[in-house]
Amino acid sequence: MTEYKLVVVGAGGVGKSALTIQLIQNHFVDEYDPTIEDSYRKQVVIDGETCLLDILDTAGQEEYSAMRDQYMRTGEGFLCVFAINNTKSFEDIHHYREQIKRVKDSEDVPMVLVGNKCDLPSRTVDTKQAQDLARSYGIPFIETSAKTRQGVDDAFYTLVREIRKHKEKMSKDGKKKKKKSKTKCVIM
């Protein structure tokens, strides 16, 4: 069974824990209790493949930012979460993405942009803004509501699919490099 290491990042209060708990335990946590770091595991079937999701729910508070490099190193894919009623959390996505790329030393890291709290009427981040940002990053965008469960499975499952595509691409690139290195030079 394939294991996928997913990391949920975003500013404090955007609903990272609520999304994760909704996926794992099928219930909505409405009281806000700032996370330092929590880890969850769940076995699911995605596109006919049974897999184990190892999900790291991270601290959004700035005082825990020193811990970010460590979990970013171990993560295979990242859910970059903002709240649709919090423009600052949307603007912060850029910083999370840049930090992930720096730590992973790669421009090509599996990510999904997630606009959470889409059940709320007080939207300050337009869907088109988020779609445009995701398009500019070359990553999928999904709106979710941890409260109603809308888009929750889709967000995590899409990230797994992005990781699969990335692994497939990397193995193809690896095979191309191996083929090239088999060419021999004969000096007579």
Rank of each mutant, 00 (worst) to 15 (best):
40 Y>L: 06
59 A>K: 02
63 E>G: 08
33 D>T: 09
24 I>H: 09
17 S>H: 01
44 V>W: 12
13 G>N: 12
59 A>I: 15
17 S>Q: 00
37 E>C: 04
50 T>F: 04
46 I>E: 08
14 V>N: 10
26 N>R: 06
58 T>N: 04
6 L>F: 13
52 L>H: 14
54 D>K: 03
28 F>K: 02
27 H>P: 01
6 L>R: 01
20 T>Y: 02
13 G>M: 13
16 K>V: 01
9 V>R: 01
25 Q>T: 13
61 Q>D: 15
49 E>I: 06
34 P>W: 02
26 N>F: 15
27 H>W: 15
63 E>L: 04
54 D>H: 05
31 E>Q: 06
10 G>R: 00
6 L>V: 12
5 K>H: 11
4 Y>L: 13
17 S>D: 01
59 A>T: 15
54 D>M: 01
37 E>F: 00
36 I>F: 11
39 S>L: 11
19 L>F: 10
28 F>P: 01
8 V>H: 00
36 I>H: 03
59 A>E: 05
48 G>Y: 08
19 L>E: 13
15 G>I: 00
14 V>E: 12
62 E>H: 11
25 Q>L: 09
8 V>Y: 04
63 E>R: 02
15 G>R: 01
20 T>P: 08
13 G>D: 14
33 D>H: 14
52 L>M: 12
23 L>H: 15
29 V>P: 08
46 I>S: 07
41 R>Y: 06
38 D>K: 00
59 A>V: 14
60 G>W: 06
29 V>D: 10
9 V>N: 03
3 E>V: 08
11 A>Q: 09
60 G>F: 04
2 T>S: 13
54 D>R: 03
56 L>Q: 04
48 G>M: 07
5 K>T: 09
52 L>W: 07
33 D>R: 05
46 I>R: 09
62 E>K: 08
17 S>N: 02
39 S>P: 01
41 R>A: 08
61 Q>M: 14
16 K>H: 01
43 Q>V: 05
59 A>P: 10
57 D>C: 01
5 K>P: 14
4 Y>F: 14
58 T>H: 08
45 V>F: 05
2 T>E: 14
30 D>E: 12
60 G>I: 11
58 T>Q: 04
49 E>M: 09
57 D>L: 02
52 L>D: 06
2 T>G: 13
39 S>R: 01
58 T>F: 15
35 T>V: 02
47 D>Y: 06
63 E>V: 06
13 G>E: 15
46 I>K: 08
35 T>P: 00
50 T>S: 11
58 T>R: 03
18 A>M: 05
16 K>Q: 04
56 L>Y: 06
30 D>Y: 09
47 D>Q: 08
45 V>M: 09
9 V>S: 06
21 I>W: 11
16 K>E: 05
51 C>Y: 13
24 I>C: 13
58 T>I: 10
13 G>K: 11
5 K>L: 03
51 C>G: 11
45 V>S: 08
46 I>V: 09
42 K>C: 11
19 L>H: 07
46 I>T: 07
42 K>E: 05
28 F>S: 03
9 V>I: 14
51 C>H: 07
37 E>S: 03
23 L>I: 07
43 Q>R: 09
15 G>P: 00
16 K>I: 02
6 L>S: 01
6 L>T: 04
58 T>P: 06
43 Q>Y: 07
47 D>M: 04
42 K>S: 10
61 Q>P: 10
44 V>F: 06
51 C>T: 09
35 T>F: 02
37 E>V: 04
57 D>N: 02
47 D>F: 03
32 Y>E: 03
26 N>P: 01
25 Q>R: 14
63 E>I: 05
29 V>G: 07
26 N>Q: 12
23 L>N: 15
7 V>W: 13
5 K>W: 00
55 I>G: 02
50 T>A: 13
23 L>W: 14
57 D>S: 02
35 T>N: 00
